[in-house]
């Protein structure tokens, strides 16, 4: 039997908002450890992995590992009907008939909404994602997640928004990380310096560089990744010319959401 409860719907609402525009289906793996979610976009360019440990839930009972594919668009629609302070219960029975039940209960007026979701195929996830040693990344940038989102928005407004293939070049050089994009009639560069932690101890921009690196990414994807900002105040971007870049948001002490994408390579 699987039975989970969260006393505030916000966490799950934010997770769905952070993934449902780019990823249409996801694999949900429930085990004694917690929930692991994985999804890939239809072009197989980006991968998202989420971990919510059992401690993230107010009640967590999972006596047998359970894996299910679910349609994220349908789930996002259901969750938009849930209030932030609704109590969510997630249930699947032992003789599960390929469905999972999400219940939203309003603590104020006692109204209960029940959604049953059928399992769907997930085209190739979950994948085994090895964790590469830190030393294999040429640079690591940590910054406030709101700042990263703002940078993505600025670059998008400059690059022609109708162009689905706007490329952003992220380059790290000592104490600077630069975001560069080319619009129709010019270029745009946003320079972020490492900030002195004394000035703004809560919002540092930290740069760890082993060697200079300059990599190209599809801005459309980066924009979607920046929606993880509702889950964490900070984002860490790990860069390597021959590994997928990792955009990681830590979720309090209870897990993380990581987006993976390979840099574009020259033909």
């Amino acid at each position: 039997i699987l039975e989970l409860r969260l006393v505030q719907a916000t966490l799950f609402k934010n997770v769905l908002e952070a993934i449902s525009d780019l990823f249409s289906k996801a694999n949900f793996d429930f085990s004694g450890t917690g929930l692991e979610l994985q999804a890939m976009d239809t072009s197989h360019v980006a991968l998202v992995a989420l971990l919510l440990r059992a401690e993230a839930f107010n009640h967590y009972l999972c006596d047998r590992d359970l894996s299910m594919g679910l349609n994220l668009a349908d789930m996002a629609k259901a969750f938009r009907c849930a209030n932030n302070d609704d109590i969510i219960t997630i249930k699947a029975e032992e003789d599960w008939s390929d469905t999972v039940t999400f219940t939203f209960e309003s603590p104020e007026d006692g109204e209960i909404s029940i959604f049953d979701f059928d399992f769907v195929g997930t085209n190739g996830v979950p994948l085994e994602i090895p964790e590469f040693p830190e030393s294999e990344y040429q640079a690591k940038v940590r910054m406030p997640s709101a700042k990263f989102m703002r940078i993505c928005k600025k670059l998008s407004s400059f690059g022609d928004s109708g162009d689905r293939d706007t490329v952003v070049i992220i380059s790290v050089d000592k104490e600077c990380v630069n975001f560069f994009t080319r619009g129709k009639t010019g270029t745009s560069t946003i320079v972020c310096r490492q900030t002195q932690t004394v000035d703004k101890p809560k919002e540092p921009t930290l740069i760890e560089m082993k060697e200079q690196v300059s990599l190209a990414f599809d801005l459309r994807y980066m924009n979607s990744f920046s929606k993880g900002s509702t889950l964490s105040d900070q984002v860490t971007i790990s860069l390597s010319s021959n590994l997928p870049a990792v955009f990681e948001y830590k979720i309090a002490e209870t897990g993380y959401i990581r987006y993976y994408m390979l840099p574009r390579i020259e033909e």
């Binding site: 890939m40 072009s43 197989h44 360019v45 980006a46 991968l47 190739g124 994948l127 085994e128 994602i129 090895p130 490329v167 190209a216 599809d218 997928p244 993976y260 994408m261 390979l262 574009r264 390579i265 020259e266 033909e267």
Partner: peptide, 14 residues
């Protein structure tokens, strides 16, 4: 500019 490689192929080959 450049080519985008599939993340699926990358992890499958690991």
């Amino acid at each position: 500019s450049g080519v985008q490689l599939s993340i699926k192929e990358f992890y499958r080959s690991k």
